[in-house]
Nucleic acid binder design. Structure first.
Lengths: 184, 184
DNA sequence: AAAATAGTTGACCGGTTGGTTTAATATTAC
DNA sequence: GTAATATTAAACCAACCGGTCAACTATTTT
């Protein structure tokens, strides 16, 4: 349901999807916003787990970065199979929807996105440590790779083709290997 | 106003922002959806013009690609100055918001995004023609660069810092120079 | 100037929204 | 088994939604 966005989905929609009555919903959640917080937490857990799986795979550090794209592809593929549509990254979707109008939300998303970029930075440092890529500051490169991931997910959503995540994964490896300048 | 999204903005909001009454709104637009179409057209014109400016600058083809990021940065900077917030790319925002739930909208956005990628592919071909980058199929690289642009705009929006578009522009150049494999 | 056309207005409409409240039902503790 | 607690439900509320429409004002045409 978070594929359609916060504002496009009513409490009634949520309740009918979950097969509970509105009274039950308000028993557990003080307001609509509170289920959003739960959804954000749940999705963050999901994505943290996805990143963890990539990071703990027994492959090279750059392979781990590629694995993120592959796992994201699987995630979008299973959404496609269950809904007929590519839903995109729910955290990314909500970020775009809510960051402009809601400052506390922007800060939450800012933190979440920074955490994902940090995980990527870790893999980059490992890659530098074993000489897979040249040594330089990892943080901006991680940001670039994360930005690229989000953009590719947007394209996959627009094209309704999860496979684009695999097709364009090399872009991330290219950035990892070649992005050399690190403006402050 | 399109910074907040289609669903988050009511016809009443639009009218009060434009200082017209609702009756006047419905004199000109049959329904809410129709002003969205106007906004999409207007924003598409704007972005086409932005891309045109980058493409017609008297600089190298790769410089043209970098110029897209610089102009996008200026665009976001002026939004920041007028609203206090980075609004993001309105076409990107709407794409994410509407593509899942609205198939005709998804197709419209699909087409628009493909057009932007085509412009980037043109610059890539020029770069290949003058030997600035190695020759290979331009379309997937253009897609990757466009995806990257959208991702960086998302980050800039989340961080509320337009300057990230300049700081991370090198990622696009890196992709242009180094992305070599072109999966079908 | 009068008639026709274009543009503006805001009260109104039925339906929906997020949230409230009271009653009923289910579960747990003693 | 009874009392206390937890959970569920749906009618209700004021406000809001996209859209309608009759009345009014402004502009253009004759």
């Amino acid at each position: 349901m978070m594929a359609r966005g916060y504002h496009a989905v009513s409490v009634k929609d949520i309740c009918s999807h979950a097969d509970v009555a509105k009274g039950s919903f308000y028993h557990y959640f003080p307001a609509k916003w509170d289920i959003l917080k739960e959804v954000i937490n749940a999705r963050d857990d999901f994505y943290q787990a996805l990143f963890y799986r990539a990071m703990t795979a027994d492959i090279s550090p750059l392979g781990k970065i590629r694995r993120i794209f592959e796992l994201a592809c699987e995630d979008q593929q299973s959404a496609l199979e269950s809904t007929g549509k590519v839903a995109g990254c729910s955290i990314g979707n909500l970020t775009l929807e809510l960051s402009f109008a809601d400052e506390p939300a922007r800060r939450i998303f800012q933190q979440l996105l920074a955490n994902y970029a940090k995980i990527i930075a870790q893999a980059l440092k490992e890659a530098m440590d074993i000489g897979e890529i040249p040594r330089r500051p990892a943080a901006p490169i991680a940001q670039a790779i994360f930005a690229y991931l989000q953009g590719v997910i947007l394209l996959a959503k627009t094209e309704n083709k999860p496979k684009m995540l695999e097709q364009l994964a090399d872009g991330a490896i290219t950035i990892a290997k070649g992005l050399t300048e690190s403006p402050a």
